[in-house]
Amino acid sequence: MLNLFNAMTQFKPEGFSSLLSNNSTTNTHENMPMQEKQEEKQKNRMETRNLTVRYGSNVGVENVSLPIYDKEVLALIGPSGCGKTTYMRALNRMHDLTRGSSVTGEVLLDGKNIYHSDVNPVIIRRKIGMVFQKPTPFPTMSIYDNVVAGLKLVGIRNRALLDEVCEQALRQAALFDEVKDRLRSPGSSLSGGQQQRLSIARALAVDPEVLLMDEPTSSLDPQSTSRIEELIQTLKEQVTIVIVTHNMQQAARVSDRTAFFYVGKLIEAGPTSTLFTNPSKTRTEEYITGRFG
C-alpha cells in the first residue's frame, strides 16, 4: 500500500496537511498528564469529546466522550433510535450532508479535530471509510471499477497501480478468488454477501485508517454473515473498526470493546468480554439480557 499512499498524498488539499501535521495547536489533549498513562494502555486512533448531534431541536446524541483505540473493533449497541448510527455518522462528518443537523463537541482523529474549519470532509471520509447496511455497489460499474472508484475520483489513472490496489483490496475483503476471472462483470451481478464484501473492498482501496460499518450483515444470510465476521477479524490487524450492530452475539463475537447507547447517551463502554458477562450498569444488563429494547 506504500505506492498508493504516496500517490494519494500528492492529491491532498490544503486542509489535509493540518491533519498530517503534528504541530497543530488545536489538540490540548497531548499536554494532558493522563495522556502518558492512556498510551501505556492503548493508543487512541479516534476520540469523541462531549459530542452532541442535533437534528433541528431533536438531540440524537448527547455529550458522548469515548476513545476509539488503534486497531480495535468497537461495537456500538443499543435499541433502535438510541443514537448509535447517529454517533457513527458523526465520526466521518456524514451529518454535513443532512440538512438541519448540527454537531458540537470534538471528534479527534490522531489527536486532530476533524470538524476544524480547515479540514476537508472528503479527505476525512477517505481516511474514515464507511460500509452501509445494504451493499452499495455502483450498479453500472464493473467489479474492478467499483473497487478503484475512490482512487479514480482523486485523479489516479496509473493502470498498474490501480490493478495492484484492486487486487489487494479484493484480497483484503476475501473476495479476490471468487471474482478474479470476472473483474469486468457488473458489481451488481454478485450475490448479496459478495456485494457487501465488494463494498468493503471499495472502502479499503483508499487505504482508510478507520472503517465504520453500519449493520454490515443485517441483510445477509448466515454464511455470508460469518464470512464478513471473519473478515472483520482479519481487517482489524490493519484498520480500526467501528461497527453498529443489533445482533448482540455478533457484537460479542467480533468486537474488542462494546459501547452501549440509550436515548442518545453513552451508558457504558468497556471490554466486550466484561460487558457481556458482568456489565456495570443495570440498563446495560437489562438490554443485553433482552429485558427491554
Partner: peptide
C-alpha cells in the same frame, strides 16, 4: 438463548 451477563452467570 445465547445468555449473557447475569443470565450467563
Amino acid at each position: 438463548q445465547q445468555p449473557v451477563a447475569g443470565d450467563l452467570r
